[in-house]
Nucleic acid binder design. Structure first.
Lengths: 170, 170, 170
DNA sequence: AACGTTCTAGAATATTCGTAA
DNA sequence: ATTACGAATATTCTAGAACGT
């Protein structure tokens, strides 16, 4: 776990957002942790946009801030207030931040990419020491992981169909 | 859907850059058109970065400005001064700007490691110990990934049960 | 390998950069070690380019200096200031500099057979490079896999909601 | 060959805008 | 109206490539 967090560099947005919430912990009235420390609440979007955002980012738009939150998997927690949550964004647990991943493109194109893969056999001629052996194994493992995820990609498709039917038929 | 070039909206960067050069036409000494009007010269990168850039963009970095110029196909015209040219960026011919196209980044389906697999590019020279460390961490990462996928495997099983019940009960 | 690193002659760029930081330690606030001595900060790129660079190199371009830093594996440490770090570039430990290696250019395909004859003793080094390359790719692949799995994690969340609704509404 | 300087491009994150669910 | 997402542009950091020494 700790080794994982070393490989992945923490996105500036995450550390800044954490700082931003932490800093306002006492002065409270603009942004703060929620009651359980499982998320944060922007109490005054106007003041937040005008005074807090520009100190951390290159803009003053609340909507841009929200777009970033969504990009990193945060969800709006309540229709009644600007509260956002992420499983790995918790009061007092800054170390969890490195488990938050930025979302990329949809994996729906995944299978095509799998088909496109071809092996390059160049390294076969070279003498193999332990590390080369390890790398080969890692590559195979990754291949396996990819195919499994591709499977879930298809699963997702069929699930979406089923669920949409369900929603429509209510 | 009449004319493509008219439909194509002018990139903010281009109009801003044009404005920026035009505006400084008289006050001159920071940035101006070149002698023939076929390009522009930044005479003082320091003042340009500090005073001009922030009035048009969200940063003060000369390098970021240059990156944008290259993205839109501008070329540095002389090794001796910061002069940039583009065939469609000319003094008094603002209408030509709409012919300048942004260079598209490669469609990122699964780009990075696919392309990396094909080329034998230069690698950082790290000592064997570090490499061993990296391999260890990679192995741990794979373990982690495997367990996560296993979790979704179980998830899928229970989902299948639930969904089959649903389908059968309709 | 340790004996090799001692034989390896220190690149001029590295010793010059070290000198440059050391020299400015007391004098002024243009460039200095960071707080922990684990890197250095260029406080004023303008003055640095104009006054410091030409005393050590043949140019006055901050970007060229940065290009060299990257060539030798330095990383920018903070988005907020021009701080660069390298594991082997530390205050008071000049001897570590010899462990810093320049990243090699990609050997062109053409003269490869020419270089092949002089390869007898450096075969291990080639293997090392290829392995490093593979490690890089593996890291990227893992990153991709992580984000994919994150996607399915979110998928699961929404599915759970839907399904719980379904169960409750029956 | 190895290193240095310059110019351009790759790749990742950030910001904006529109729109689908 | 609300919420989240796709996609285009913008900004940042690093690397490729060409050329000269």
């Amino acid at each position: 776990m700790t080794s994982l967090s070393k490989l992945r560099s923490l996105a500036p947005f995450l550390s800044k957002t954490y700082d931003l919430v932490e800093e306002s912990r006492d002065s409270n009235d603009v942004v703060s942790w929620n009651e359980e420390g499982s998320g944060f609440v922007v109490w005054s979007p106007e003041e937040f946009s005008r005074f807090v955002l520009p100190r951390y980012f290159k803009h003053c738009n609340f909507s841009s801030f929200i777009r970033q939150l969504n990009t990193y998997g945060f969800k709006k927690a309540s229709p009644d207030r600007w509260e956002f949550r992420h499983e790995k964004f918790q009061k007092g647990k800054r170390c969890l931040l490195s488990d938050i991943t930025r979302r990329r493109c949809k994996p729906s194109v995944f299978p095509s990419f799998l088909r496109a893969r071809e092996k390059k056999s160049s390294a076969a001629e070279i003498n193999e020491n332990e590390m080369l052996e390890q790398n080969k194994m890692l590559q195979k493992e990754n291949e396996e992981l990819r195919s499994q995820i591709a499977y879930y990609g298809e699963l997702e498709t069929s699930l979406q169909k089923l669920l949409s039917q369900y929603v429509c038929s209510r």
